[in-house]
Amino acid sequence: MHRTKVRIVEDALDANNTIARANRDDFDRHRVSVVNLMSAPGAGKTTLLERALATPLDGVRVGVLEGDVQGSFDSDRLASLHIPVTQLNTDPGFGGECHLDANMVRSALPALPLDEIDLLVIENVGNLVCPAEFRVGEDARAMVCSVTEGEDKPLKYPLMFRTCELVVVNKIDLLPHLEFDLDKFLYHLDQVHPGVERMLVSARTGEGVGAWRDWLSAVAARETALA
């Protein structure tokens, strides 16, 4: 018995990326733009969607794919918006994956009304580490970071903050009650991802939510522009 060296030089996540491209092709075929929305648990992704979609976007039909480890708490909350919401649990039993990957999203495709929507928002599992590694077929990646999380987060999770083209800073209504130094946070953000687009919002009061709605509409328009 002898040993043979087999050169591979392949991204370890290559298999995921291949499925992500297949998802993207399917979304493109249906002219659906896709946003992968990520954050730490409790940053306010669902509340931000509730606020933004309480009134329909002009000319943009939105659907939501809710990724959670378990339960349908988030999709139940969005049910009152009267838009298509699909729940995707990473494990049907107890203790599933901490992120969505391309294959999980692929398994949800048959349940998505792709012909009835222009924009799909995929709300990823709350986690600042793993979701950054796994593409799911999205056109744009955005993240929510709330002011209760600390100014140093961009330095602690650089992959996440660098992979997103938009950082939504949420819960700014709480700033007067916190010691959070917003300037310091924005300085760290600029060091980790120079020039990244950012917006300051409060999903609770609605402040800044108009800009978030405009951004979603702009992402939806990208697919139309390509079509």
Partner: peptide, 12 residues
């Protein structure tokens, strides 16, 4: 980087 560079296999 996050890549598998090479593997060594036993021929059997």
């Amino acid at each position: 980087e996050l890549e598998v560079d090479y593997i060594e296999v036993s021929e059997q």
